[in-house]
Design a protein around this nucleic acid. Structure first.
Length: 569
RNA sequence: GAUUUGGUAGCUCAGCUGGUAGAGCAUUUGACUUUUAAUCAAAGGGUCCUGGGUUCGAGCCCCAGCCAGAUCACCA
């Protein structure tokens, strides 16, 4: 790709700087004694402060008025205005540093370090009067220019494709984006300290697994060369964490990157983060209280209040949350009581509600469909939906009062699942049967391979204490806490299809096949991006095109002879 | 996977019934010593996503593809 005019200008500036003895990429660090936000916070109260500051950052805009200029400098905390005055920056005769280096060779996007003193301009803006400056790093690509006035943004950099592919540009130019990720880390830190305060141990378990268990999702497959076996990226870490409970830990948790080889959309990324926790001697009732107090704390840590605005709704994370058994939820929203009903009766109920069904659906599946279709979206405020049918929950203990149900809850927020928890199944014989049942179901459907993790069964055979486990989607939680409805907004680098590789033709390639030095660049400019492409044409045609190009652009080089061109083939 | 919208200058976007491609900002040159979407004057800048087709002629129409967004489906 040919460089744009602006890129060429900047590369020229780079050379000119070097000629002036200025290294555009100096090795040494730059000592800073203040940040932009510190100045803005404290200077108003006491304007004797900050009379010898040293600060570094990126130039975000420039307003040049002859011998004086204003620059907007952005450091990691904020933006602050700089005031450059020629005779202060260049006190002696030689004004090169201002006239040439600052005005002509620096650009928006460059990093500089400046020293000076803070003052307030006539317009009332806190600024730094610069006494000296140094180039710290030259930018060769122009940034998108985003301007603001009265909280209105002009020419915002909004193209999602570019924002996600070039997140660094997004972060430079769109200040609120940074806030999302600062909050993300706050949320994770808050959760981690809550878990640690309870004395639970943060652990790490394998991401690369021979058997991808713990959830029925399609895995990514890779290959181990020396073992010569397929390996899988984990879809969940549940089975490993439970092994650790077997091993004698009381409570273990992991912030896990999981990978699922399924569709991508506004709420699904192939890799995503879940926190899973398992605690011995607890049941799902305890886990509900634990989960709600954890979320309440996170909301307080992040927003200093329990009310969080998400889209059109205000969501209250104040504990306790409502608890509704799934059959009660269906009764509430459809008037149909499925308690104790047969599979046929459930099928009829689903049909009467206009839900698409097929005869192979079991009772559990039907209940899940009805809930998903008719109830789920009603639960805007955090609500624990409990006691799911046993078919849907192969790793969950049967309900102590009703063996068709399980001791499971899903936490619904804004009509979406945020967390999922069980009283864990620790009966190894029941567990094996449930796995086998899953395999049987999967074979019927035949679209997903299923694995039985026999080592996990073996671990249960040694005995696992009664345990409750919970998984919570961190990306979704961050979406709620930052009011973003797209998962891509809360991941630094959401998965995108690879950019098509732009082929960059090199003049040397053409020289190799015999194109004269002075012609090499023009051959590319004339439209031949590879030697192969050139050779696909007839020599006479190439001859014609190139001499046509020479004539059109009035090139000051001799025309090519047909024999010369033929020699390239 | 289906439907749908979009892809034009560094960025944000116009572009007529199909007839030599436009604006603002940015860039370059010049003026300007407290501006703030700075201002004023002039100039340069394009593989109109890619490949085919229709046409005397395609940014625009047709077909195929690529990338992205939205909606839906799938996801115990």
């Amino acid at each position: 790709m040919a460089l744009s005019e602006q890129e060429l200008v900047r590369r020229n500036s780079l050379n000119e700087l070097r000629k002036l003895g200025i290294n555009p990429y100096p090795a040494e660090g730059y000592v800073v004694n203040v940040t932009a936000s510190e100045i803005k916070e404290k200077f108003l109260a006491d304007n004797t402060l900050f009379q010898e500051v040293s600060i570094a950052g990126r130039i975000m805009s420039r307003r040049i008025m002859g011998a004086a200029s204003f620059v907007e400098l952005k450091d990691s905390t904020s933006r602050i205005q700089l005031y450059f005055k020629r005779d202060d920056v260049c006190p002696k005769e030689d004004k090169t540093l201002y006239n040439t280096v600052f005005k002509r060779l620096l650009d928006m996007g460059d990093f500089i370090g400046v020293t000076g003193y803070v003052f307030t301009t006539k317009m009332g803006e806190i600024s730094i009067h610069v006494t000296s400056f140094r180039l710290l790093s030259k930018a060769l690509r122009p940034l998108p220019v985003v301007k603001e006035k009265d909280d209105k943004t002009f020419d915002a950099f909004t193209d999602p494709e570019m924002r996600f592919r070039q997140r660094y540009v997004d972060l430079i130019v769109n200040d609120p984006v940074k806030e999302i990720f600062i909050k993300r880390t706050k949320i994770i830190n808050s959760m981690r300290s809550f878990l640690n305060d309870h004395g639970y141990l943060e652990v790490e378990t394998p991401i690369l697994q021979a058997i991808p268990g713990g959830a029925s999702a399609r895995p990514f497959v890779t290959h181990h060369n020396s073992l010569d076996i397929p390996m899988y990226l984990r879809v969940a870490n549940e089975l490993y964490l439970k092994r650790l409970i077997v091993g004698g830990f009381e409570g273990v948790y992991e912030f896990a990157k999981d990978f699922r080889n399924e569709g991508m959309d506004r709420t699904h990324n192939p890799e995503f983060t879940q926190m899973e926790i398992y605690v011995a001697y607890k049941d799902y009732n305890w886990m509900m209280s634990f989960t709600e107090s954890m979320l309440e704390k996170i909301a307080l840590d992040v927003h200093a209040k329990t009310d969080v605005v998400f889209e059109k709704n205000t969501i209250s994370f104040k504990a306790p949350f409502n608890r509704v058994p799934i059959l009660q939820a269906i009764k509430d929203h459809t008037g149909i009581d499925l308690n104790g009903k047969s599979a046929e009766e459930c099928l009829e109920a689903a049909k009467s509600l206009g839900i698409e069904v097929d005869e192979s659906m079991g009772k559990g599946k039907l209940i899940d469909e009805i809930f998903g279709e008719k109830c789920e979206h009603h639960y805007i405020q955090p609500t624990f939906i409990t006691d799911y049918p046993v078919e849907m929950s192969p790793l969950c203990k049967r309900h102590r009062e009703n063996p068709e149900l399980t001791e499971r809850f899903e936490l619904m927020v804004n009509g979406k699942e945020l967390a999922n928890a069980y009283t864990e199944l620790n009966d190894p014989i029941d567990q094996l049967e449930r796995f086998e049942e899953q395999v049987r179901l999967a074979e019927k459907g035949d679209d997903e391979a299923m694995w039985i993790d026999t080592d996990f069964i073996r671990s249960l055979e040694y005995g696992m204490p009664p345990t409750s486990g919970m998984g919570i989607g961190i990306d979704r939680l961050v979406m709620f806490m930052t009011n973003n409805s797209s998962i891509q907004e809360v991941l630094f680098f959401p998965q995108m299809k690879p950019e098509p590789k732009k082929f960059i033709p090199k003049p040397e390639d053409f020289i190799t096949i015999g194109v004269p030095q002075e012609w090499a660049n023009y051959v590319i400019a004339a439209g031949f991006s590879s030697t192969k492409e050139l050779k696909e044409q007839k020599a006479s045609k190439v001859h014609q095109i190139l001499n046509g190009y020479r004539k059109k652009n009035k090139l000051d080089i001799p025309a090519l002879k047909i024999e010369e061109v033929e020699a390239w083939f």
